[in-house]
């Protein structure tokens, strides 16, 4: 029984009001803190999307030589890394696509995001891909593109426009889709 004549709920309400008054000044700080934490999430929104023109590759300094004759070709731009298992799995498939469709006007270009040059070179020595590969050593290009996963494969048409984006590599399903989309892009009139 209350000694001062007030019930439990009345006192609870007053305590709540007291707390609200005390922490009222801190509410904007709390809100901004929550926003900050939410903004540090790692889910990326890809900067280079379907319909966007491919950034001019010659504006970036890659380690390795870019293919000279990319104009008017269908390009498979593949971001990969030696430490990425799906990238390793995708290399034979991309090599087969290069061999099969290269004569029709297709170029596969691998862009490695490896920080360690030795790991990059060892991977290439082991895989020996039949397509061109360069290293984006300072990550300038990948930061512009914002590749959402490793690997991410961009299919670019003859006009230099990104038409399809493949996030990750999912075995036969990815290969089938890549072949279908690339065949359709190669059949388009320039």
């Amino acid at each position: 029984m209350d000694t001062d004549g007030h019930g439990f709920w009345h006192r609870l309400c007053l305590s709540g009001r007291l707390m609200m008054r005390t922490f009222r000044g801190a509410l904007p700080v709390l809100a901004s803190g929550l926003l900050f934490v939410a903004s540090t999430g790692t889910d990326l929104e890809a900067a280079l999307k379907e319909g966007d023109p491919l950034p001019k590759l010659s504006d970036y300094s890659f380690e390795g030589t870019l293919p000279a004759d990319l104009a008017g070709k269908v390009i498979v731009l593949d971001f990969w890394a030696s430490w990425c298992a799906p990238c390793k799995a995708s290399f034979p498939a991309l090599g087969a696509i290069q061999r099969e469709l290269g004569s029709s006007g297709l170029t596969v270009l691998g862009v490695s995001v490896d920080e360690k040059k030795a790991a990059y070179e060892a991977f290439l020595k082991k895989q020996a891909p039949p397509f061109a590969t360069v290293r984006d050593a300072d990550h300038r290009f990948v930061k512009v593109v914002q590749a959402p996963k490793m690997p991410t494969t961009y299919l670019i048409d003859r006009k230099g426009v990104v038409r399809h984006v493949h996030e990750g590599f999912h075995g036969e399903g990815s290969v089938k889709m890549l072949r279908e989309q690339l065949t359709a892009l190669l059949n388009e009139k320039p």
Partner: peptide, 15 residues
């Protein structure tokens, strides 16, 4: 102080 522990690791930085 809690915020400095939050760091977004990009997909290309996961070596």
């Amino acid at each position: 102080f809690a915020g400095v522990g939050c760091s977004g690791v990009q997909p290309w930085e996961r070596a």
